[in-house]
């Protein structure tokens, strides 16, 4: 692969507004309960915005009996609907709940990092919509930031699949709560 595109998520900048999550639905018109991107609040009050992590060693790719998954030269993991039988093995294998069952087509769908938009030189819909630039896409082969982290609070085990995501930590702040 010549590149590994991946999300860089700056926890310090995320305000939990869910714009990324709904912009994804607007762009991709996912049906019913299918949410390719989800924003969740963590126990410490910070937020995570997660979708498919376009892993270096994607389990979905490995377990699919129909070989419906491919990994592009830029690292994006795609699913090809015409090959998917809807068996759901990938849904069990993925630690991040990225592949989801479409109740209308009875096939699995997932975030493809807006590959059509990326091919046109546009940003992924979630990235474009983020009002605070908390969410960006970078080539992780060349991206380097000293405080970048491979995992964070609330993120599942990364050892199996080596997800293509970098987290930037929250900064310290001064807070005075009421005395009484």
């Amino acid at each position: 692969m010549v590149k590994q595109l991946g999300f860089v998520f700056d926890i310090d900048l995320c305000i939990g507004c869910k714009t990324c999550e709904v912009a994804c639905r607007n762009e991709n018109q996912t049906v019913g309960t299918v949410r390719w991107r989800k924003v969740t609040r963590q126990v410490d009050g910070s937020f995570l915005s997660l979708s498919c992590n376009h892993c270096s060693s994607p389990e979905c790719f490995r377990v699919c009996p129909e070989n419906a998954f491919t990994k592009r030269m830029d690292g994006i993991v795609e699913i090809h609907a015409e090959r998917c039988s809807g068996c759901g093995l990938c849904m069990e294998a993925c630690p991040y709940q990225a592949p989801q069952f479409d109740p209308i087509t009875h096939k699995v769908t997932k975030c493809q990092m807006c590959n059509d938009r990326i091919d046109q030189g546009l940003q992924a819909a979630c990235v474009e919509a983020c009002p605070t630039e908390a969410l960006t896409v970078k080539d992780l082969y060349t991206f380097c930031q000293v405080n970048g982290m491979g995992t964070t609070l609330g993120f599942p085990d990364t050892r199996l699949t080596n997800p293509s995501i970098v987290f930037l930590p929250e900064k310290e702040r001064k807070r005075y709560f009421q005395m009484r």
Binding site: A23, N26, Q29, A129, P131
Partner: peptide
């Protein structure tokens, strides 16, 4: 089929909020 922010708008600069993107629904 979809809504998008308007980058001609000097304040919002092409962004909408979650409610704005949900107008298609």
């Amino acid at each position: 089929v979809k809504v998008a922010g308007d980058d001609q708008h000097g304040y919002t600069k092409g962004n909408l909020c979650a409610k704005g993107y949900a107008f298609t629904q």
